[in-house]
Simulated assay, not measured.
Amino acid sequence: MKKILSILLTTAVILTLSGCGAKKEVATTAKVTAEKKIIKVGASPVPHSEILGVVKPLLAKKGYALEIIEFNDYVTPNTALAEGQLDANFFQHIPYLQSFSKERNLDLDYTVKVQIEPMGLYSSKYKKLSEIKSGAEIAIPNDATNGARALRVLEKAGLLKLKSGELISKLDITENPKKLKITEIDAPQLPRVLNEVDAAVINSNFAIEAKLNLEDALAVEAKDSPYANVLAVRKEDKNKDYIQALSKALNSPEVKKFIEDKYKGAIIPAF
């Protein structure tokens, strides 16, 4: 009788402990599922945050809450993503993402292309390209990929000639007939120094923030530019449901119409 009672008590304890473990596991799973309904995305204020504003209600219909966290630099959004503080970011083009990830050994990738932002050569001193004088100072972004893009804009405008290749720098200038001085500056600062230099090659997002009109640019990057802005994610998350939902929303007809209507050619859909 004592043996039977002992066995029954032992069984009851095991079942109780198992039940607690199961409850804990279910609770943990439920918590993880709930967390994945909130998608944290880092973005530049213009146009990326504005585009995500269109995406927000589209995701809400799918049961996801989109949290947009704005950044004003080109470094923090990638490090924050790699460290798990963000689920994705939306501010950069493919060459920059690839270069940054390689330099810092980050396991980042992208899912979809969203828009192309043509660079423009802006000036508060000159109205025409032909007016640029010998020895003029032209500012360009100081990061490798955008700096290379800017130099190609100057080459396309006929102001200088460069070596072939992708990540070229001012050291790769082969012809500079006007002896232009190329100054490298942080991309977000370029609109602010426009009155201090003769001209500057500025990314569209910063140009738009500064109320610069692409139509007033002295030269514009070709519209077949390979520098499409993308949704960046950790490689391990590429195929997860919430990332797929976000990617689909960014390539929706609603987003395409918004880009075309809002930016009127200054920014072009890439899908």
Score class of each variant (00 low, 15 high):
Leu17Tyr: 01
Glu254Ile: 03
Ser204Ile: 08
Leu159His: 07
Lys36Arg: 14
Tyr227Val: 00
Ile94Thr: 14
Pro253Leu: 10
Pro177Cys: 01
Ser225Gln: 00
Glu175Tyr: 06
Glu166Val: 10
Ala80Met: 08
Glu236Met: 09
Thr111Asp: 11
Leu86His: 03
Leu160Ile: 09
Gly165Phe: 11
Glu67Asp: 13
Val55Leu: 03
Gly165Ile: 11
Arg104Ala: 12
Val233Tyr: 00
Val41Gly: 01
Leu212Asn: 06
Asn176Lys: 04
Leu59Glu: 05
Asn213Asp: 14
Ala139Asp: 03
Asp224Thr: 01
Ile267Tyr: 04
Lys211Ala: 15
Gly63Glu: 04
Ser44Thr: 11
Val114Pro: 10
Glu236Tyr: 07
Leu129Trp: 06
Leu162Ala: 06
Leu231Gly: 09
Ser44Asp: 10
Lys248Gly: 00
Ile173Glu: 04
Ala228Lys: 15
Asn213Gln: 11
Leu86Gly: 02
Leu151His: 08
Val32Ile: 15
Glu236Leu: 09
Ile259Gly: 04
Ile68Cys: 08
Val112Pro: 09
Ser204His: 09
Ile259Cys: 03
Ala199Met: 06
Ile243Val: 15
Lys156Ala: 14
Leu250Phe: 04
Leu212Ser: 07
Lys178Pro: 01
Thr145Val: 14
Leu106His: 05
Glu236Gln: 15
Leu160Ala: 10
Lys56Ser: 14
Ser18Tyr: 13
Asn105Trp: 01
Lys61Ala: 12
Asn229Cys: 05
Lys56Tyr: 10
Lys223Tyr: 12
Ile116Ser: 14
Ala270Ile: 07
Lys102Val: 05
Pro191Tyr: 08
Lys2Glu: 15
Gln189Arg: 13
Lys113Phe: 12
Glu50His: 04
Asn195Trp: 05
Ser225Met: 01
Val255Cys: 02
Asp261Ala: 14
Ile69Phe: 10
Asn146Leu: 08
Leu129Arg: 00
Ala228Ile: 08
Pro57Thr: 03
Lys62Thr: 02
Glu117Asn: 15
Arg152Met: 09
Leu58Arg: 09
Asp186Trp: 02
Ile14Met: 13
Gln85Met: 12
Lys256Asp: 07
Phe100Met: 04
Ile116His: 13
Glu236Asp: 12
Pro141Asn: 09
Lys61Ser: 08
Leu159Asp: 05
Val201Arg: 03
Thr174Tyr: 10
Glu184Leu: 03
Glu236Cys: 06
Lys240His: 01
Glu215Pro: 05
Leu180Ser: 11
Thr79Lys: 14
Gly63Gln: 02
Thr79Arg: 13
Ala60Gln: 13
Val255Leu: 00
Glu35Gly: 02
Leu159Tyr: 07
Thr79Phe: 15
Val112Ser: 08
Asp107Val: 03
Val193Met: 12
Glu175Cys: 02
Asp87Arg: 11
Ala266Gly: 12
Glu131Ile: 04
Ala150Gln: 00
Leu171Trp: 07
Pro57Ala: 04
His93Gln: 13
Leu212Pro: 06
Val114His: 08
Thr174Gly: 04
Ser164Thr: 11
Gly158Met: 04
Ile69Asp: 07
Leu190Gly: 00
Tyr96Arg: 06
Ser134His: 08
Lys56Cys: 10
